[in-house]
């Protein structure tokens, strides 16, 4: 049992992971340190959920490879895991749906370990809208809280037209919560201030400052690989070895989806919905 008032937290990171880098892994470490330092949370698990191929992002290589690299990268972590559900979906899945899926999984896992009464109680509460709209985590004593782990750029992207559905943003920050890693030169509080939805749920948004800039973008890593430059120490050795063995990133792979519109934009532009 956790001490009273300490909420177990599961961190979920969604993204391309094309390929996973040390920066992705650092984000988990930073978020755990920050949340646990508050004395209110205990981070029990991290989940990496690579996006499916249906996302149609330029240069996005097959999900099976991105999954395998993420698995190799987390081999030496005792708390970060990789989940294939999202990447196995034939079409792109909204992040809100991915979070919902993982929350249900968490509840199901809990049901296995708890007695029936508690489970019923939890499910009953889950259906209570007021419970979801509440930003008070203390009320969620009986289940782990699921938080979306992301960079400040995701918070910023909430403002990009046609990228997110408004209900999804409300659900993500209202029901679940965000652990948002920010770099110097970026002011996430501004985005929160500028958005009424984010402002309303600001207590569910945890801003985590990176104490040492460690910007390893996957785009940069792919560029370096295409040009035959070293990417050692930017990602785990096991991942680098896998990339070389499978000859993953080339000029050809970078042209994948070159002229294709990103799935979320396709779905939300012009009222078309799938």
């Amino acid at each position: 049992m956790d001490p009273l008032g300490v909420t177990p937290v599961v961190l979920l990171a969604c993204g391309s992971f094309n390929p996973i880098t040390n920066m992705h892994l650092r984000m988990f470490e930073l978020a755990r340190d920050h949340l646990e330092d508050s004395g209110r949370y205990r981070v029990v698990k991290g989940i990496i959920s690579p996006v499916g191929d249906g996302y149609k992002k330029k240069g996005l290589i097959e999900a099976c490879h991105r999954l395998q690299m993420a698995r190799l990268a987390t081999e030496n972590s005792d708390w970060i895991t990789v989940d294939s559900w999202e990447s196995l979906q034939s079409e792109w899945v909204e992040t809100a749906k991915v979070i919902r899926h993982h929350y249900e999984e968490l509840l199901a896992a809990q049901a296995d370990s708890n007695d029936v009464d508690t489970v019923k109680h939890t499910k009953k509460r889950r259906m209570d809208e007021n419970y979801f709209e509440s930003s008070s985590h203390q009320k969620r004593r009986d289940g782990p809280q699921l938080m979306l782990l992301c960079g400040a750029d995701v918070l910023e992207s909430f403002g990009v037209p046609n990228l997110w559905r408004q209900e999804d943003i409300t659900e993500i920050v209202g029901r679940y919560g965000l652990a948002c890693i920010t770099r110097s030169g970026c002011d996430p509080h501004k985005f929160i201030h500028q958005s009424d939805v984010l402002w309303r749920h600001r207590k569910n948004i945890h801003i985590i400052h990176e104490w040492v800039a460690n910007e390893i973008s996957a785009t940069h890593v792919r560029r370096a690989l295409r040009r035959g430059r070293s990417v050692r120490y930017l990602l785990p050795d096991a991942v680098l070895q896998y990339i070389q063995e499978c000859d993953l990133y080339s000029d050809v792979s970078e042209q994948k989806n070159a002229d294709v519109v990103l799935a979320p934009l396709q779905r939300y532009t012009g009222g078309s919905s799938s």
Partner: peptide, 8 residues
């Protein structure tokens, strides 16, 4: 070095 990495 094109990436900002200030690990010291």
């Amino acid at each position: 070095e094109w990436m900002r990495n200030e690990t010291s």
